[in-house]
Amino acid sequence: MQDIISMLIGVSPILVMVVVFYFFLIRPQQKRQKQVSQMQQNLAKGDQIITIGGLHGMVDAIDEDTVVIKVNENSRLRFDRSSIRSTTQQEQA
Rank of each mutant, 00 (worst) to 15 (best):
L55D: 03
F79G: 14
Q89Y: 03
S86M: 14
Q48W: 04
M58K: 14
T87H: 04
S37I: 03
V11N: 06
K70Y: 01
R78S: 13
I26N: 00
S6M: 08
R85I: 01
Q29V: 07
Q33R: 12
V68N: 13
I9E: 13
M7Y: 08
D65Q: 15
L15P: 02
V18G: 06
S37V: 04
V36M: 15
G53V: 01
I4Q: 09
A44I: 09
I52P: 00
Q90T: 03
K45C: 10
I5Y: 12
S86P: 00
M7A: 12
D63K: 12
V18K: 01
V20L: 15
I84P: 04
V67D: 10
M7S: 06
G10Y: 01
A44W: 01
N74I: 10
R78L: 11
S37N: 06
K45P: 02
S82W: 01
F21E: 06
T87Q: 07
E64N: 08
I49F: 02
G10A: 11
V59Y: 05
S86R: 08
D65S: 08
S37E: 09
V18D: 03
L15H: 11
D60G: 10
K34N: 06
E73Q: 15
V59R: 10
L25W: 05
R76M: 14
I69N: 09
G10L: 11
L15Y: 11
N74R: 09
R78V: 15
V36Y: 09
V19T: 15
I5L: 13
K70W: 03
R32H: 03
R76N: 15
N42L: 13
V18W: 04
Q29N: 14
E73A: 13
S12Q: 08
I49G: 03
S75A: 12
R78F: 04
K45G: 08
D65K: 11
S86L: 05
I14D: 08
V16W: 10
F79W: 09
Q33E: 11
M1L: 09
G46Y: 03
D47K: 02
I84E: 10
Q38A: 07
K34Q: 11
Q40G: 05
V67W: 05
V19L: 11
D63F: 02
G10S: 08
A61V: 02
S75K: 04
Q89H: 02
V20G: 09
E91N: 05
R76T: 12
V71H: 07
R85H: 06
M1S: 07
V71P: 01
Q38S: 04
L15V: 12
L8D: 01
Q48R: 04
M1F: 03
N42P: 03
T51H: 06
V16C: 09
V36T: 13
E73S: 15
Q38K: 14
P28E: 07
M7P: 00
S75D: 13
